[in-house]
Design a protein around this nucleic acid. Structure first.
Lengths: 151, 151
DNA sequence: AAAATAACACTTTTTCCCACTTTTTAAGCA
DNA sequence: TGCTTAAAAAGTGGGAAAAAGTGTTATTTT
């Protein structure tokens, strides 16, 4: 399985393209290093899936029962932002405009590891997120999350 | 199998035609990229089936027991709007008027992936649909839908 | 030297508009 | 009434201009 580490910055050009930071490039799977799916994140950010990470998710979704209204609702929300992307000859990725809006991206962005995918944040919003976080609250959260896991 | 991704906008011209967005065009099956069936959606929207996606559904429906009044009722409703469509020389699709009414389409429309087919919404109605959705409610829904699957 | 950014040229897609054909509707008349 | 014709509406096809997207090269930064 793919496992990303680290956090890198990048900038969007006038057309909404950005260069995948070299740090992440090195961590991409060897076979399909140019194929991605990008989607809305649960928070005000985007989620970038290398194609290998996306496929099992999509496969799950396509098995759901289409006659269940909840399924349709979920699917609509989940798939609406998902967009297939391929990096261009210069290794850049072009962000769809609706997703840029969703995440409130401007010019400076931050790419953060999220295990088998990468989250994309607006730099300012990302910093603010951290400012609201004290070491203690982080410690509490860690305790809660990691404990539930082991029960 | 066909699997669509993403959400794209289009506009209807005075005659009720729209251009299938390039983003979806690329995802169409190579063999019959101009043949569709369009139908009422369960919600206030339309469902556009590439012909390959329609055929298995139609086949399912034709197998149902005709002596069951509920079957006849369902079939009547489901098939009543279904219309065969072919895109014209410029790649445009002409919407039947009765279906435009059903979905309350005006000028601006949104096309959204529904795995092997595409939903067509009025832009305003679609936006309202999303406004009623908080990240938490989506998260709950996702949890519910994807959990049922694993039981 | 490698990576990131900026600038530019080019191609594709989209939009908007107009002209033409076919079908439908309405109207006139024997 | 039934036929014919005119008018209107609906549907189709295509082209030009604008916008969006893509690729390349050069320059700057680290």
């Amino acid at each position: 399985m793919i496992g990303f580490l680290g956090e890198y910055e990048a900038t969007l050009d006038a057309k909404g393209r950005f260069l995948l930071p070299a740090g992440f490039k090195k961590q991409l799977p060897a076979n399909n290093p140019t194929h991605f799916v990008i989607n809305r994140g649960f928070e005000k950010c985007l989620t970038l899936y290398p194609i290998q990470s996306w496929e099992p998710i999509f496969s799950e979704i396509s098995k759901l029962n289409d006659f269940d209204p909840k399924v349709r609702e979920f699917r609509r929300y989940f798939l609406n932002g998902a967009t297939y992307m391929e990096s261009d000859s210069a290794g850049r990725l072009l962000l769809p405009k609706n997703l840029m809006e969703h995440a409130g991206l401007d010019k400076d962005i931050v790419l953060v590891s999220a295990v088998n995918k990468i989250e994309i944040w607006d730099k300012n919003k990302y910093q603010k997120f951290f400012e609201t976080f004290t070491p203690e609250s982080f410690s509490d959260l860690a305790n809660e999350v990691m404990n539930n896991e082991n029960k």
